[in-house]
């Protein structure tokens, strides 16, 4: 296994761990963090595998994609955090309301 693939598999690990937390944790802050960890995992897969170029610099295209992805992740996280604060303000609970209770 090359170093590039080792890093990429680590990225998959982060993705899986994040997905686990997203599903089983109820606290919304944990869910938002979980999505960020999943995102980091995907970014790691993208950049690590760019290092497979035979000799010469790594492929710059995935690097550019990851920069784009990071900005998107920052934007989404900011929106999620403010939404979380509003949910807490209106319901007093940092968790998703039960959809059937309405």
């Amino acid at each position: 296994m090359s170093v590039a693939v080792l890093y990429a598999v680590t990225g998959l690990g982060l993705f899986s761990l994040g997905l686990y937390a997203l599903i089983v944790r109820a606290h919304l802050l944990r869910k938002i963090l979980a999505l960020n960890i999943m995102g980091s995992g995907v970014f790691l897969v993208l950049t690590a595998l760019a290092r497979r170029a035979p000799d010469g610099p790594p492929d710059p295209v995935p690097h550019a994609m990851v920069i784009t992805g990071i900005v998107v992740a920052v934007a989404a996280t900011a929106l999620a955090l403010v939404l979380l604060r509003r949910v807490v303000e209106t319901t007093g609970q940092p968790r998703l309301p039960d959809p059937d209770s309405e």
């Binding site: 997203l22 919304l28 869910k31 938002i32 999505l35 989404a76 929106l79 999620a80 939404l83 979380l84 509003r86 949910v87 209106t90 319901t91 998703l96 309301p97 959809p99």
Partner: peptide, 10 residues
């Protein structure tokens, strides 16, 4: 609306 939007976002 806020709860629905939060779930939608996740």
């Amino acid at each position: 609306a806020l709860g629905g939007a939060m779930r939608y976002l996740l």
